[in-house]
Design a protein around this nucleic acid. Structure first.
Lengths: 350, 350
DNA sequence: CTGAAAGCGCTTACAG
DNA sequence: CTGAAAGCGCTTACAG
């Protein structure tokens, strides 16, 4: 079958050890020997047996990832996007991704099940929750992991995250600078860490501007067009006669719904209403649905994948977790959905 | 670290060989010994080292799967649905799924890349094409695989498929029995094996009824709402004054588009137009978009997963491929989108 | 019923 | 610069 080191060593009259060293680029090997070994290895189509390598090095070269399905069992675009980039980035580093799909209510269960198979070097987590139970579990077991995002400000594990507080603050600051005073916020679900950070950044920026927001103008739900549509409809038809002049959306999906609602209500964007969204760089949302380019904060999910893979590899090679924490800043991209506050919009809410 | 056979054997004063045999259910082991071994193994949380097992048995307990992204990089709902069911079904059988996501133009490339890592026992393929190059590659290499679907009528590998010819024939027969003579067909992309089978079943059923269809009334495209909408708009506004009285759709997504187009054109369903679709049981399509229950042929994708996993395990254990071929029949479910042919619709096309 | 031994294919101290 | 040896954790003929 497949050629082994033994085959090469037999053919050349060398020891298996020397062949191994030659192929692995050890400096002490004679250059002529190396060339001869390389030649025979190529001729025989030698591929190192990863299983044997893994047995001796104690590492499997495999990391796990759990896909969580939404309640309606839909494919999660966000997850697929990360998955696509991650398998490529990990593969380039000789690491394979073992996947489990789970709809379990306890996120630790699939993690534990997969880990107890005993085949994984570690995990890549995504979509952290506040007080994420997965973090507690993995840390208590000493299982290596890298997070896309971070579950709290004091996270002491490797991660790649964006500065979510700044995302909101950038949006608010931009709107405030254009005179907006009544700014609503369609956030993600409150138990998600990213949503908490976004909220924090939103509150801080509003406070700096001396502005307040009534409870009904800040909402939490899973990002979707319907959410944006329904929430915007409610906000814009608020009976007190003080609708928001601007809406900050946690995702472009939500913004699409907001734009539809505004159109249906005869509210012109951006003349009567400004809309800012966060854009994860998911192609379908941008290209398919939007006639008007949104003003967005943008950090493509794909950009997280290479750093995540690198952090994972470094962690497994023994690097300090503290050195493997990256926070990226989202770009601010001005589109056609933001403008100066309309006349009569300067009045504050509270 | 993790407990090994050696740890258990040391604690019990047994040989590693006996411990291995006890844990693996060899019949010659003394029952009392087995119980003692089991107890210590459980207490130590022993998990067999799969890498070591693999090295000695030549099997890894891992199978690969490639996710192909659409051109617009969208998550593929169909794929996620299968993935979810499959990881569960495989996991229950102690098999792990290694995933690669690929947008490569040549479908063999990711397969080869993953296989050459040398860590997989086999592959699970989905979405077969006519003359699928993956089949040729895997068979030429002698790599085990199981297919969801089959690429040709003479497939000689393990698969789980539905009777796609019958799916179309059932739809056509049902419509013909209600007097329809002008039946259009919005099929999937022509190079997909399932679409070819559907076409075949459609043609055969139409021929049995003595009916013909002009080229423009049979269309091929990736299933989507837009495709359904655009195609139905074209079909129903055909200048020759002989629009179809019924449309058969390759998926519920397409049917959703057809219904929208009909509504916009003021064409009543089912009075003026009957619509039949194939339903893969994807929850989001059924629940989110439809006000009118469709008449469908239905075979939930989820139902394929357990048979696929079982076939995979059996194949790896040496079963004959010929005994691992399952063809399921889709259910026919009458909804509210089909009715007797409208007046004036009895005229044939050709 | 149990044990000692060989071996899967590789890596890596330890000698020389 | 190269080799002989030990070992990663397991399985499985071969003895007893």
């Amino acid at each position: 079958m497949a050629a082994t080191l033994k085959d090469i060593s037999a053919e050349l009259g060398l020891s298996v050890a020397t062949v191994s060293r030659a192929l692995n680029g050890f400096p002490e090997v004679n250059e002529k020997t190396r060339v001869r070994v390389r030649a025979v290895a190529d001729r025989l189509g030698y591929q190192p047996n990863r299983v044997a390598q893994r047995l001796v090095t104690g590492r499997s070269g495999m990391v796990g990832m759990i896909a969580r399905l939404n309640a309606d069992m839909t494919a999660d675009q966000t997850f697929m996007e990360i998955l696509a980039g991650l398998t490529a980035a990990l593969g380039a580093r000789d690491v394979d991704l073992v996947l489990n799909v789970d709809q379990h209510s306890d996120p630790v269960v699939p993690l534990r099940k997969l880990y107890e198979r005993g085949i994984l070097d570690g995990f890549i987590l995504n979509a952290p929750l506040i007080d994420d139970p997965r973090v507690a579990y993995l840390q208590s077991k000493g299982i290596p992991f890298v997070m896309h995002g971070k579950h709290s400000a004091t996270a002491d594990y490797p991660y790649y995250a964006i500065d979510n507080a700044r995302v909101s603050a950038d949006a608010v600051d931009y709107l405030v600078a254009r005179g907006h005073r009544r700014i609503a916020f369609l956030n993600g679900e409150a138990h998600h860490a990213f949503a908490a950070e976004r909220r924090q950044g939103f509150d801080a920026a509003m406070a700096r501007a001396g502005l307040k927001v009534p409870d009904w103008a800040i909402r939490n739900a899973p990002p979707s067009v319907d959410y944006g549509f329904d929430a915007a409809t409610a906000l814009l038809t608020a009976r007190d006669g003080a609708p928001p002049t601007a809406i900050v959306c946690a995702s472009t999906l939500i913004a699409v719904g907001v734009l539809r609602a505004a159109q249906l209500l005869g509210i012109e964007v951006p003349q009567d209403l400004s809309v800012v969204a966060h854009d994860d760089g998911l192609p379908q949302v941008v290209s398919d649905e939007l006639e008007t380019p949104l003003t967005v904060t943008r950090s493509p999910l794909r950009e997280a994948c290479v750093p995540l893979a690198e952090h994972m590899v470094a962690l497994l090679e023994g690097a300090e977790p503290a050195g493997l924490q990256t926070v990226a800043r989202a770009d601010f991209i001005k589109g056609k959905t933001t403008a100066e506050v309309p006349n009569g919009g300067e009045e504050t809410w509270l």
